[in-house]
Design a protein around this nucleic acid. Structure first.
Length: 834
RNA sequence: GGCUUAGUAGUGUAGUGGUUAUCACACCAGAUUCUGAUUCUGGUAACCCAGGUUCGAAUCCUGGCUAGGCCUCCA
């Protein structure tokens, strides 16, 4: 703070005085002095060209300041090139900041001697246009583009400024000409009118793997971060033939890869990565690999390989090809030899402490280690010794000889190979050394001709070493681009933290439905299409974000609203006896499974003298805003022919709890139209009604706060799981469950058959492959409990009828155990609880 | 401490120097409704701060502030 004020003090800063000497005023001189890099360049330029005695006017002086700023951001501008531009400013050829900026860009790729004609053409030197000529072109533009009114003023100005022929016309002249033309054509500009809204496009039903927002808007792959990615072949190479070979192999397609490390189950953040990689490739007619990143056998387990493929397929994607980083171990080793031979790698025996110290330990500049300059032959011999198992872990490692002068720590001689004392799940004991992530990832991307290497923002710094290594080996160089991770408020994504929750008993396992792992969401019953819809509407940027859970829930509800059949269900049953019906009264009611989708079919349910309603739908005291049952109040029953009126109720003498309502069916006199309808299930043993649910699991948030602290154990919500024991569902449950299960099996078989046809075969018999069983689980039985919530069958359920091939009417059987998971609640109007 | 990425309604996100700053969720209001759900309609709400360049800045430049990432466990 104090140094800032002293810096701005003209009397004390010779730099500001020097800048003032060329004609800058006090404020602009101070501004130019602020940026150290640009200020140094300006100082040097002034002194070398004696600008202080050149009698510049203020505009020219400002051009020199702009020149210095542009050079400070450019790469590798030489003194001769700088002098060339200085001369052009002095002789009056470069007159605007815009011209100066373009000039600096020009000399970045054109060295002295510079072709004056080419330079002048590129930088607008000598360009002139009269007002009349400009007006003619503007009018021509208006006519040929069918411009209709003043609301297009901004876009017309922009289009004309962007046209090549008018690139160097004065922007103010363009603005004036456009306004003159508009005035002549449309009359005087009027006050802005309210913009008429475009009618909203009819929304299409979502489908898995191709969920799209409204057609009137751009796809997430066409705007923002993904919209700005390069076209295939647009990533520059160290040699042109590398680009040509890449395009020849891919045919100019987008090729991406989803490269998880198989060290844990995937979580919802991975769904964004899957969507981005698979979706971007699919949107652009390309291909996506599934690549298991298995360079560290100490952390990887076989069980995760299968699960990862299952989750990718469950979300609706099919890998074009499945590969492993370990597929390339031989090739990676040979390239390491080549890197050593090129004197771009060396074997180092420093301890980790020594390496840390050499790297400055977060404080200073790195310094080379004592092995950095050893002869190539020594490094080659030692690397063979590493490979032959003559070193224990940490005794030797292969380091890349990068650039210790660079400001990026990723360039400070990263490790390429290290010794690990672990058997690899695929290569067994063949290797004693294993390549690191920084060595392997870019090279395997290159081998697999990846056009877009999409990863998350923690790898921003790694981009430089990624590109360095491809260039050092003169290989095809994919372009790495980094986008922001998906994080959900109130959830944790760290595999280490989730493992702690599992091992310490806070949750029942990685697939506990309170978690946001993909297997947990699946078990809970979340449809995969809903997840894809969720991530596709989020947008992709590089920002750090935290998504509200309400947004995820909305996507799930939206998906289920049109797809989930409705079943009558009560969570906390309250017995109702309709006293004006005979004891043996029975009416069979056929009702639709969906109020708006008749194709989902119908179910038949009994209606009898004794039914159950939800306890929440009755209260003792009526009120103006309350529309359901109370003594003396009438309420409708869904699909039943008449409403009921509560006449009296019974309570438990010992607890005072209401145990039964006595009601009257309003089937006499003029029909009553009740304000509300409630759901019910009837007691009718001959038809198996009601279906009693053994457990209904309702999940609440796992953590109390939106951003669980590092000590997340203290933030655990002890009431995150609620188990309800007495819920009841209508008998339509049985045929519906059977039908949904059969459909899931059928769809899984069809999709898998198709996938096996169109995917490249995997070489290894042990590689996980597509099976129909991966796509079918008990959670495929989903429904909405009418007026309650969306539910799915839990994997703990035992329902013999689902596995029974016999074409018999399904019903409860001996040994059945029904467990439902609440997928998501319905939204509740605030008036409902008043 | 060094390097680096970012900052647009409460939450996300779109946005070529020229727009009345887009869309979605959330929120409010109305209509419809055999789900106080859904659907439809309308509304409230934003360019981190300061300075500069420019006829004109959310956009370009400089500085500051805030948040994140990396700086030899991995990936």
């Amino acid at each position: 703070m104090s140094s800032k004020t002293s810096k701005l003090d003209a009397s004390g800063d010779p730099l500001i005085a020097l800048f003032k000497s060329i004609g800058l005023n006090q404020a602009k001189a101070a501004e130019a002095a602020k940026s150290p890099k640009a200020a140094a360049i300006l100082k040097d330029t002034i002194e070398k060209h004696s600008l202080a005695t050149a009698s510049l006017d203020e505009k020219q002086a400002s051009l020199f300041a702009a020149l210095a700023s542009a050079i400070s951001k450019a790469s590798d501008v030489g003194e001769q090139e700088t002098s060339y531009i200085v001369a052009r400013i002095l002789d009056g050829k470069l007159k605007s900041v815009d011209q100066v900026s373009v000039a600096v860009k020009y000399i970045e790729s054109h060295r002295v001697p510079i072709d004056d004609v080419g330079f002048d053409a590129q930088c607008g030197v000598g360009f002139t246009i009269t007002s009349e000529e400009l007006l003619v072109q503007v009018n021509e533009h208006i006519t040929s583009n069918a411009i209709a009114g003043w609301d297009k003023l901004g876009s017309v100005i922009t289009s004309i400024r962007n046209s090549p022929s008018l690139r160097w016309a004065n922007p103010l002249d363009i603005k004036n000409a456009v306004e003159t033309a508009f005035n002549d054509t449309f009359g005087p500009k009027q006050a802005g009118k309210p913009k008429t809204k475009e009618p909203k496009a009819v929304k299409k039903e979502s489908s898995a793997a191709s969920a799209q927002p409204s057609t009137s808007r751009k796809s997430v792959f066409e705007e923002g971060f993904l919209g700005q990615l390069h076209r295939p072949g647009g990533n520059p190479q160290i040699h042109p033939h590398l680009r040509e070979a890449h395009l020849a192999t891919t045919g100019g397609q987008v090729w991406t890869r989803f490269p998880p490390e198989p060290n844990g189950y995937l979580h919802i953040g991975h769904s964004k990565a899957i969507f981005v990689n698979f979706g971007y490739a699919a949107h652009n007619g390309g291909k996506c690999y599934l690549r298991y990143d298995d360079t560290n056998p100490e952390k990887e387990e076989a069980r995760y390989f299968e699960s990862i493929l299952e989750m990718v397929r469950w979300l609706g994607f099919e890998p074009w090809k499945i590969t492993y980083s370990s597929d390339y171990f031989d090739k990676l080793y040979e390239l390491a030899i080549e890197l050593i031979k090129r004197d771009k790698a060396y074997v180092c025996h420093c301890t980790q402490e020594q390496i840390k110290a050499d790297r400055g330990e977060k404080r200073g500049q790195p310094r080379p280690c004592i092995h950095r300059d050893r002869p190539v032959s020594e490094s080659l011999a030692e690397f063979v010794n590493m490979k032959d198992g003559k070193y224990r872990p940490k005794e030797a490692n292969l380091r890349m000889k990068q650039d210790l002068e660079d400001g990026n720590p990723q360039m400070w001689d990263l490790t390429a190979y290290r010794v690990l004392d672990a058997s690899h799940h695929r290569t067994g004991d063949k290797w004693k050394i294993y390549p690191t992530y920084d060595y392997t990832h870019c090279l395997v991307d290159s081998f697999e001709n990846i056009s877009h290497s999409l990863c998350t923002t923690e790898f921003v710094s790694s981009r430089q070493s990624y590109e360095w290594l491809c260039d050092a080996l003169e290989l095809y160089k994919p372009r790495q681009s980094e986008y922001g991770r998906l994080s959900l408020e109130g959830a944790i994504m760290s595999k280490r933290k989730i493992l702690a929750l599992v091992e310490e008993g806070y949750v029942d396992g990685w697939d506990d439905p309170r978690l946001y792992t993909l297997i947990a969401l699946r078990r809970r019953g979340v449809p995969p299409g809903a997840i894809i819809s969720f991530v596709s509407t989020l947008g992709v940027s590089t920002a750090v974000t935290s998504i509200e859970v309400a947004r995820f829930e909305h996507a799930v509800r939206q998906y289920l609203e049109s797809t989930a059949p409705r079943l009558l269900m009560v969570m906390r049953p309250l017995k109702v006896t309709i006293e004006n019906l005979p004891e043996d009264y029975l009416l069979t009611i056929e009702k639709p499974l969906h109020p708006k989708v008749p194709e989902l079919g119908t179910t038949s349910v009994p209606f009898t003298r004794t039914i159950y309603i939800d306890a929440d739908d009755f209260r003792l005291e009526d009120s103006k805003d309350y529309f359901r049952l109370a003594p003396g109040k009438t309420v409708g029953l869904f699909q039943a022919p008449y409403p009921i009126t509560c006449t009296s109720y019974k309570t438990d003498p010992s607890t005072g709890e209401i145990v039964e309502l006595l009601c009257k069916l309003e089937n006499e006199g003029p029909p009553k139209k009740p304000k509300a309808f409630i759901q019910w299930v009837a007691e009718h043993p001959p038809s198996g009604s009601p279906v009693r649910i053994d457990e209904t699991r309702v999940f609440h948030r796992l953590f109390k706060s939106d951003n669980p602290p590092a000590d997340f154990r203290s933030d655990i919500n002890p009431d995150s799981l609620e188990v309800i024991k007495g819920a009841m569902v209508e008998v339509g449950f049985w045929p519906l469950s059977k039908q949904l299960m059969n459909e899931a099996r059928h769809d899984g078989k069809a999709r898998t058959a198709k996938a096996l046809e169109s995917s490249a075969p995997a070489a290894d018999d042990e590689t996980p492959h597509a099976t129909s069983e991966q796509l079918v689980g008990k959670e495929c039985v989903r429904f909405q409990g009418l007026r309650v919530a969306y539910f799915a069958l839990d994997k703990d359920s035992r329902i013999a009828a689902l596995d029974n091939d016999v074409d018999v009417e399904p019903s409860r059987e001996q040994g059945d155990y029904l467990v439902l998971n609440r997928i998501v609640s319905l939204k509740e109007d605030s008036g409902k609880t008043a």
